[in-house]
């Protein structure tokens, strides 16, 4: 098993957001995490990535057989966890080339590989750009600075391609994208899918899942996974809306 989450509770500033998450992810699988706004989808992504503002109050996360929660953000990244940000940060003054080269070489160093030289690196960049259909000239631009919403998200997929993660978490990568950009992003993901890696696709809507076919769909509601199923669950959700889940939860609550 690649990732195993058991009874995970997490809070921010004393407010509990995750209230007992259980989730197992194997290599080669694509898991879609769906749910209404404010139910903890992004928090789950951040906690796996290791964002320090969240306190894990109980539960465990085992990744590649190790306690993930003990690792720093960058250690998790080097172990192959990639987070595609919902709102990628603008970093003025840091060129994408410099940024990616530093990142790629740090990951290589961690794996005991020699750093890539300038020429080899540029070649790799061109290759991956093509793979994710990124046409804009990145070399002289600062990370995400002045990028359009679509460019920012494509840039996230490009970085994912560069870093070749084992577990990629895409946090609402589809939000704010027009249909063409959505297709590009999805194609990128599909090309990068292998039997050795896994994806967690967090989304509010079903439409991304028309392009990225998930193996499992989970519904996150008020800090818990309340429903899991196959890709048909997403369609059912689309049809019935989240009120269906709310009602069901309410009914369960009364029943229990």
């Amino acid at each position: 098993m690649l990732l195993s989450i058991k009874n995970l509770h997490a809070s921010i500033n004393g407010k509990e957001i995750l209230k007992g998450i259980d989730l197992d992810v194997n290599q080669g699988e694509v898991h879609a995490i769906m749910g209404p706004n404010g139910t903890g989808k992004s928090t789950l992504a951040s906690v796996i990535a290791g964002r320090e503002v969240f306190d894990v109050t109980s539960g465990e996360v085992i990744y590649k057989g190790r306690n993930l929660l003990k690792l720093a953000v960058e250690e998790r990244a080097r172990e192959g966890i990639f987070l595609g940000f919902q709102y990628p940060v603008e970093i003025p003054g840091v060129s994408i080339t410099n940024f990616m080269r530093t990142a790629v070489n740090e990951v290589r160093k961690f794996k005991g590989l020699d750093p890539l030289g300038g020429g080899a690196f540029l070649k790799l960049m061109e290759e991956k750009k093509k793979l994710v259909e990124l046409t804009s000239n990145l070399a002289n631009r600062s990370v995400n600075e002045g990028f359009s919403g679509g460019e920012k998200k494509k840039n996230e997929i490009f970085q994912m391609a560069m870093l070749e993660p084992t577990l990629a978490i895409l946090d609402e990568t589809d939000s704010g994208l027009d249909i063409d950009a959505l297709r590009v992003v999805a194609n990128g993901v599909n090309k990068l899918r292998t039997k050795d890696n896994a994806f967690m696709v967090i989304t509010h809507y079903q439409r991304l899942l028309d392009y990225i076919i998930p193996d499992f769909v989970h519904v996150l509601f008020e800090g818990k996974i309340v429903k899991s199923g196959s890709k048909e669950l997403a369609l059912e959700l689309e049809e019935k809306g989240y009120d269906w889940i709310r009602k069901e939860q309410r009914d369960n609550g009364i029943a229990g």
């Binding site: 960058e74 990639f82 987070l83 990628p88 940060v89 940024f99 530093t102 990142a103 990951v107």
Partner: peptide
């Protein structure tokens, strides 16, 4: 910028390198 630090570290860049990158960017 702590958000930028997090972003850089999420890409596997160590804290020291990330700090250096951001300081340089700041001076740039």
């Amino acid at each position: 910028d702590q958000d930028a630090m997090y972003y850089l570290r999420q890409r596997g860049i160590g804290e020291d390198s990330a700090r250096m990158l951001l300081m340089y960017a700041y001076a740039d």
